[in-house]
């Protein structure tokens, strides 16, 4: 900070303004995003690229839904759960959605405790997140089995347009794959946190690099993304 009396420089030194300081950062050396570690930058970029994948899935879904001449099945009936003789439309999906959103909450807390280096609580919260994730995948498996029993196949189904089954298996499968990968990495990172690898600077098995608590936040970014994608799938595929 300069101490000059000149009003002009005092003004610019005091508060460059948000946009201006963003431009200053961008046009400076070494880093375009100040204080963003490499791993986080990479995760953001990956998620941006992944956004394209899911957007294209959804756009393709809408296109074939328009191009097919057979009526689209009524999702609230297809995805209804019968409990005690009563049909609850979309009950299972609602529970799954609720669970996934809750898991985002526990994940966010894990990130917070990670930065205060509270090892035990961070690891536990990550484990809880992973268990939520697992139960989500489990319920998805249940849903798949149920539909398969009812005769839904990727190439045909008894309810209407065959593309319904194709899209269902493809999009939920791809999303479920994301969740499963996330669960695996949650376990790995939780184990590292629990053991204190990020405090002792133990080197990674594959990368032989030292990790730190930013890994928890990277996991968090990924997990929230997977969660957000689900909201779109829920809105466009199940509710529409």
């Amino acid at each position: 900070m300069s101490q000059t009396a000149s009003p002009k420089s005092a003004e610019s030194a005091a508060d460059p303004g948000r946009i201006e300081s963003a431009i200053q950062d961008w046009s400076s050396d070494q880093r375009a995003f100040k204080n963003v570690p490499w791993g986080k930058a990479m995760m953001w970029l990956f998620l941006l690229s992944d956004t394209f994948i899911f957007s294209i899935f959804l756009i393709s879904y809408m296109t074939v839904r328009m191009s097919t001449k057979v009526a689209w099945p009524n999702t609230s009936q297809v995805f209804a759960l019968e409990i005690g003789g009563v049909q609850f439309p979309l009950l299972l999906i609602a529970i799954m959605t609720f669970i996934l959103i809750s898991s985002s909450g526990t994940m966010a807390m894990a990130v917070k405790f990670g930065y205060s280096k509270n090892r035990k609580i961070t690891a536990i919260l990550m484990l809880v997140t992973a268990l939520f994730g697992l139960s989500f995948v489990g319920m998805q498996a249940f849903e798949w089995t149920k539909l398969i029993h009812e005769g839904v196949r990727p190439w045909s189904n008894p309810f209407g347009a065959p593309q319904f089954g194709s899209i269902f298996f493809m999009i939920t499968g791809f999303h479920g794959f994301h969740v499963s990968i996330g669960v695996i990495f949650l376990f790995i990172v939780a184990r590292k946190v629990w053991r204190g690898d990020y405090d002792t600077g133990k080197r990674g098995f594959f990368t032989s690099r030292r990790g730190n608590y930013e890994h928890v936040e990277m996991m968090g970014l990924y997990w929230h993304f997977v969660d957000l994608v689900w909201v779109f799938i829920f809105a466009f595929f199940y509710l529409w």
Binding site: S27, D29, Q30, R31, W38, A41, L45
Partner: peptide, 16 residues
């Protein structure tokens, strides 16, 4: 991902 992050976040001093 590596190429982009390296260019954005790992330049030398003075390399704007």
């Amino acid at each position: 991902l590596n190429y982009v992050v390296t260019i954005l976040q790992a330049r030398a001093r003075g390399m704007t």
